[in-house]
């Protein structure tokens, strides 16, 4: 029994991925600095990657790892565009919180 307990199972990885994802989601909700919100989105992406790799390991299927590779590529593209947008916004205004970007509200 102890040998089974001391070996990390798929459930452990899934619980860890869930907690990481929730920390990232809460960060997006709580923080007002757009850069930190972006970092929290990266946290959520990483949590999903852990879940994918854990399932690939469990099912013995390398497809999960290929999917994580594509997620990494998309995350890189997303960060490039997102930071470009943030820089473009920040150049026009001095404030640094997401709450001030409400001018489309009408």
């Amino acid at each position: 029994m102890t040998a089974v307990v001391l070996q990390p199972t798929t459930t452990w990885y899934l619980v860890l991925a869930s907690v990481l994802f929730v920390i990232g989601a809460t960060g997006v909700l709580v923080r007002r600095n757009p850069l930190v919100m972006f970092m929290c989105i990266e946290l959520m992406l990483n949590a999903v990657n852990v879940a994918f790799v854990a399932f690939a390991h469990r099912l013995g299927d390398p497809t999960g790892q290929s999917v994580v590779f594509f997620v990494l590529v998309v995350a890189a593209a997303e960060v490039t565009v997102g930071l470009g947008i943030i820089v473009a916004i920040m150049r026009r205004r001095t404030s640094t919180t997401a709450d001030d970007l409400a001018e489309l509200q009408g």
Binding site: V4, Q7, P8, T9, T10, T11, L14, V15, S18, V19, F21, V22, A25, A56, H57, R58, L59, G60, D61, P62, Q65
Partner: peptide, 24 residues
């Protein structure tokens, strides 16, 4: 949300430990 996700993972409760099947 964390309660929901963790509960889902725990209910699924997969206790198998796999090493090196299918993944090189």
């Amino acid at each position: 949300l964390s309660g929901l996700l963790v509960a889902t993972a725990l209910v699924a409760g997969d206790e198998t430990v796999v090493r090196g099947s299918g993944i090189a």
